[in-house]
Design a protein around this nucleic acid. Structure first.
Ligand SMILES: [Mn+2]
Ligand SMILES: [Mn+2]
Ligand SMILES: [Mn+2]
Ligand SMILES: [Mn+2]
Lengths: 227, 227
DNA sequence: GACATAATTTAGCTAAACCTAAATTACCAC
DNA sequence: GTGGTAATTTAGGTTTAGCTAAATTATGTC
């Protein structure tokens, strides 16, 4: 029933960015990295980090000149917004005929504005999905996240089969290209020895190998192959 | 492809309020009426009206001390937002199990943030509906609005049958009460002579008459009965 | 025609969230 | 340890949208 939103779109986006950039080991994130990721100036980041640290309860632990980490509360909110984002992507894709390169932009805005009720109804309609259309796992309502070991395609060894576990949803053109090449979550592939600087040679099933540019490969994450 | 939104949530809400308050004959709307409707101070309204008038292209025609009217552009945007609102209400109600007293609040926020694409997909999914769950007509994509003659229940003559055409969606408790009493859009009723100050006696079909409070009645609009 | 009252506007302030330009600080090399 | 460079913060400014308090304007009444 309370009407005062606990956070704004900008705050949400900072929290998500800190979570994403801090990685699995939850390193401190630098102002510059955040500025780059969010497309704002470093000075603006400093201003926001000071506010995020100052609020009660605090969303981050911030040490001037040494970077920022999420507090428990901040992490909780970041995961909530990511849950919104991924549920929305799944919903737009499965129920409203969005293609997988269209969902991200729409979800990026709406994630901040849907209520708990809508979140729950969408999750129910979808049957509580575990993954979004790009293979990213959807945090549980209580903030639990499925642990997964992912390795970038670029650093996967040759001749060891692996399945694509997820792909970056940031660039629509790249997503269309991945789809064209058959590089979808779940696809099993083998990296071939013919790797050159600037591209990687990849075989899917028994087809002839495909050359995947480094930019495209950078967005592709693998899980250990079928054992 | 352009990313700069033409209006903000606040601007949208002012435009909608001006449209609603100016009525069918499009009277000028006073600052006080807007302040009341929007829940802000009259001074804030003046400030906003000056901005709405000053922008290029202007959203309103504003004469200080004499009220405000929508420009063609402003009216166009107001109708666009109302289309979003009513499509969202219909969608939440029909596809996501929202009850008719829950839809308004959610739509009130989301109406400002859905893209043209999502608007179109929702409309398609619903089969281009003409009415929202409260009986209000949904403006067409080109801004056309179906003309309807509506009369308040309070000023309808006795013993002349009429159908409920729409009900106010502003108050969830009132909506639940209307539903309990069977006062839904499409319901045919007759006003009985037993009208007292504070309430109206209404007969639905061949049931025994129901007493409807003035507050509830104030939200109920009728169309001419079956001829 | 002058006044009281109500409606409305102006003036000056606040909070978010951004910006640029100018410090400041950390840290690496020598 | 002293510099130099890159990273970061501070200082000061903008825009949007609200606020309060103090004018100002419109208008109905005598
Ligand atoms: Mn976002
Ligand atoms: Mn995604
Ligand atoms: Mn609104
Ligand atoms: Mn409605």
């Amino acid at each position: 029933m309370s009407d005062a939103p606990q956070s704004t779109e900008a705050v949400d986006d900072y929290l998500k960015a800190i979570l994403e950039l801090s990685g699995v080991d939850e390193d401190a994130v630098t102002s510059n990295a955040l500025a780059e990721h969010l497309g704002v100036r470093a000075a603006s980041v400093t201003g926001m980090l000071q506010k995020l640290a100052a609020r009660e309860p605090s969303f981050v632990h911030y040490q001037k000149h040494y970077g920022v980490r999420l507090s428990v509360v901040g992490r909780r909110r970041a995961l909530e917004v990511i849950r919104h984002h991924r549920l929305l992507e799944r919903f737009l894709h499965d129920f409203l005929d969005y293609s997988w390169d269209e969902v991200h932009e729409e979800a990026e805005r709406l994630e901040h504005y849907i209520s708990e009720r809508l979140e729950d109804r969408i999750a129910a309609k979808l049957g509580d999905p575990a993954l979004d259309p790009h293979g990213h796992s959807i945090p549980e309502k209580d903030g639990a996240v499925a642990e997964r070991h992912e390795v970038a395609l670029a650093s996967w060894p040759c001749d060891v089969p692996a399945a694509i576990s997820s792909v970056s949803d940031r660039n629509p053109a790249e997503l269309r290209e991945m789809k064209r090449l058959g590089l979808l979550p779940g696809t099993v592939l083998v990296v071939e020895p013919g790797t050159r600087a600037g591209s990687i040679l990849v075989r899917i099933g028994s087809d002839s190998p495909t050359r995947v540019s480094s930019e495209l490969a950078a967005g592709i994450m693998l899980a250990g192959g079928p054992r």
